[in-house]
Simulated scan of single mutants.
Amino acid sequence: MTPAGRGRPGPRRALTEDEILDAALALLDEAGPAGASIRGIAAKVGVAPNAVYTYFPDKAAVVRALVEKLLGDADHGVFADRDRPWRERIEALAIDLRERLVAHPGAAALLMSGPMDGPRATAIGEQLQELLIGAGLAPTAAARSTYLLIVYVLGSIALEVADESEPGPLPSEAARIDSRRRVFEQIPAEVFPRSAAAARTMATYVSTDQYLWGLRRILDGIS
């Protein structure tokens, strides 16, 4: 007989990798990198921590898989369109990655925390090299240019989200620029004259315009 006061155990909770990654992403969005512990992820999906360990050996593995998921979910339609000019294709990919990753600042902050050697990250690098070779670069120059582009795009995004100290979604771009402007306008001109004079420009370092300005300068150099 079933002991008094105790019911029969219910069916075992089914779990998928996507559920774990969605929970990790939600926790990163809510509390930043410190919030997405294995225990926290398990609680979020309603299982014991051991169930998460069945899929991922540690938090670092969750982060790697999450970055892979975000890269793979990006819309590469224009980037893959061979009828578009090569620069337009690279810009489209860079803009899409920035929009997707800045929307999840907790995850974006982890981009530079480990090697990006998963299959989806490697596929992006492969496509970039193929595109650049097709544009006339020698294979070695294409490989070096691919690395330069990836460092610029991911580094820019990581610095952009790091500019906000509070966890959670980033304020609007206009609000962030305005907040930075108020800070930079306090720079003492008698000590840092050039920085004080450039305060309004420096405030826009987190803008789409700045991001594209830098990307286009790099593409100018590559071409």
Rank of each mutant, 00 (worst) to 15 (best):
T2E: 14
T2Q: 12
R6F: 07
G7M: 11
R8Q: 14
R12S: 09
R12D: 09
A14N: 10
D18P: 00
E19F: 08
E19S: 13
A24P: 02
L25N: 15
L27E: 03
L28G: 03
L28V: 07
E30A: 15
A34L: 11
A34N: 01
A36S: 12
A43R: 15
A43E: 11
G46D: 09
V47I: 13
A48T: 02
P49V: 10
A51M: 12
V52L: 09
Y55V: 05
K59Y: 00
A60Q: 12
V62T: 08
V63M: 11
R64Y: 04
L66C: 13
K69D: 11
G72C: 07
F79G: 07
F79V: 11
R82T: 03
P85R: 03
R89H: 00
I90V: 12
I90Q: 07
L93T: 04
D96R: 15
D96E: 14
R100S: 08
V102C: 15
V102T: 12
A103M: 11
H104Y: 01
P105W: 05
P105L: 15
G106Y: 06
A108N: 13
L111D: 05
M112R: 15
S113C: 01
S113K: 13
G114T: 06
P115G: 12
M116Q: 14
D117T: 11
P119I: 10
R120C: 02
A121S: 15
T122V: 14
T122P: 00
Q127V: 01
L131N: 03
L132G: 12
L132T: 03
I133G: 06
G134M: 10
A135Q: 03
A135M: 07
L137K: 07
L137R: 08
A138L: 09
A138W: 02
A138P: 00
A141V: 04
A141N: 05
A142H: 03
Y147G: 10
Y147V: 04
I150D: 08
V151Q: 10
V153L: 13
L154S: 01
G155D: 08
S156T: 01
A158V: 01
A162C: 06
D163Y: 05
E164Y: 08
E164T: 09
S165V: 04
G168Q: 01
P169A: 08
L170Y: 02
E173V: 09
A174F: 10
R176D: 05
R176Y: 02
R180N: 11
R181S: 09
V183S: 08
E185H: 12
Q186F: 04
Q186P: 09
Q186T: 08
A189E: 01
E190V: 11
R194V: 05
A198F: 06
A199T: 00
T201H: 08
A203P: 02
Y205G: 04
T208K: 11
D209M: 08
Y211V: 02
L212A: 07
G214D: 00
L215W: 01
R216V: 02
R217Q: 10
G221V: 03
G221L: 04
